[in-house]
Amino acid sequence: MSDPVIRINKMNKWFGNFHVLRDIDLNVASGEKIVICGPSGSGKSTLIRCINRLEAHQEGDIEVEGVTLDGSLKNLEDIRSNVGMVFQQFNLFPHMTVLENCTLSPIWVQQKSKAEAETLARELLERVRIPDQADKYPGQLSGGQQQRVAIARALCMNPRIMLFDEPTSALDPEMIKEVLDVMVELAEEGMTMLCVTHEMGFARQVADRVIFMDEGEIVEENAPEAFFSNPENERTKLFLSQVL
């Protein structure tokens, strides 16, 4: 394994008295695709939200591309410009057009010119297959289209790592595939990806590793074939019997 781009060491996090993440150790190599699954409340969303510090951890270290996440603002800016995130609820900005959503960060954070940012945005909208929706507002798009805009918006920052927090859970069944197709394509291009998802087909197809979490711990991690055909832990077996 080459030098890891994400290094998490003995990380602990509490919400008040509730211990959400316990002694998490995780290294992610460049270009690696990791799928994280587990029952609800197991801390999987919280784990990936710690990686771009939407949640602050209390103990242990997180290092992203050699930069340590400690409260420093400079480090935080470095990390956020390298890490894109896609949310379950899309979180597009409803008062901006699709194009404005995509160019916001390139213009205001990366100081690009408007023309340059728009060219880039249109390219990426093409890649997620909605180039003709650029001038519409998010409210005028279907859920699947909105989520693809959200992916394009994150990609506009030219990130090295992408985090997906249950990207298909809020979608109607017939729209799940269009979003997953985009994610598969992205994976094939070599993006480093961490996905919290229950789409086991997607996990089989693209994941290098599947991680199973329960009660704030990483219970089991393995290559997808071994993970699905031969789970070692009782809790993993129980979970898989319910979702597969």
């Binding site: 597009l92 960060s105 954070v109």
Partner: peptide
């Protein structure tokens, strides 16, 4: 919604910029 601030933060926008470009325009309506 909190998600709007989170999305802005994940895009690397500093708090003040997020407030000005994302939160206030939506709060105004």
């Amino acid at each position: 919604s909190k998600g709007q601030r989170e999305a802005a933060a994940a895009l690397g926008l500093p708090d003040k910029t997020a407030l000005r470009l994302v939160v206030i325009p939506q709060a105004l309506r």
